[in-house]
């Protein structure tokens, strides 16, 4: 199941400030702690962080909230963290901290999905080719992409490691976000 977390609401609960700015490392720690508490009581497969109404996100909070949750999900195989509602001007903070730590996250915006962070070109191509509901076998992916089986296997390994696709009966799907 997808567990959606309204980050702005969590921020309001965690910090007494009139501003919806997700800034400072202690604030990030407090917000992440509350999110982890929610997830601890949920049968989640995907944690959808909804950043609607968050005005600013600094690097410290991008690390404490997004990077650390992405890493936590990665360590629990089969679980992923994704983002929606994030102002495009704030993508760079997340991209920078994830890239630095060889992590990645999917961002939903305007009906499409963008991967931020450390995403090799082959993983990006693979992700764009995969479908959310219909599994594609590795051989079919190689054919669609015009790649060797070895190249496809390497890209699948990397994509699985980043948590942007998963195994399904009959092949692989991109992470389900809807």
């Amino acid at each position: 199941m997808i567990e959606t977390i309204a980050v702005a609401r969590v921020l309001r609960e965690a910090v007494t400030t009139p501003y919806l700015n997700l800034v400072t490392r202690p604030t990030g720690v407090a917000v992440r702690g509350r999110i982890e508490s929610v997830l601890a009581t949920s049968e989640w497969e995907t944690a959808m962080l909804d950043f609607s109404d968050v005005v600013l996100l600094d690097l410290s909070c991008a690390d404490e909230v997004v990077a650390k949750l992405v890493r936590m999900a990665q360590e629990r195989l089969g679980r992923v963290v994704a983002i929606r509602g994030l102002d495009e001007h704030l993508w760079e903070s997340i991209h920078a901290v994830l890239e630095h730590q060889q992590l990645a996250v999917a961002v939903l915006a305007d009906g499409s999905i963008t991967l931020l962070g450390s995403v090799p070109c082959d993983v990006q191509h693979l992700f764009n080719t995969l479908e959310p509901a219909t599994p594609l076998a590795a051989a079919a992916l190689s054919q669609r992409l015009g790649w060797s089986d070895g190249r496809t296997a390497a890209a699948l390994d990397a994509a699985l490691g980043l948590g942007v696709c998963r195994r399904a009966t009959g092949g692989f799907v991109r992470l389900p976000l809807a």
Partner: peptide, 17 residues
């Protein structure tokens, strides 16, 4: 550009931290 304002506030936040 408008996005420079976000970066400016981010820089300020990190510097103060």
């Amino acid at each position: 550009e408008a996005k420079a304002t976000m970066g400016f506030a981010m820089a300020l936040s990190e510097a103060c931290q």
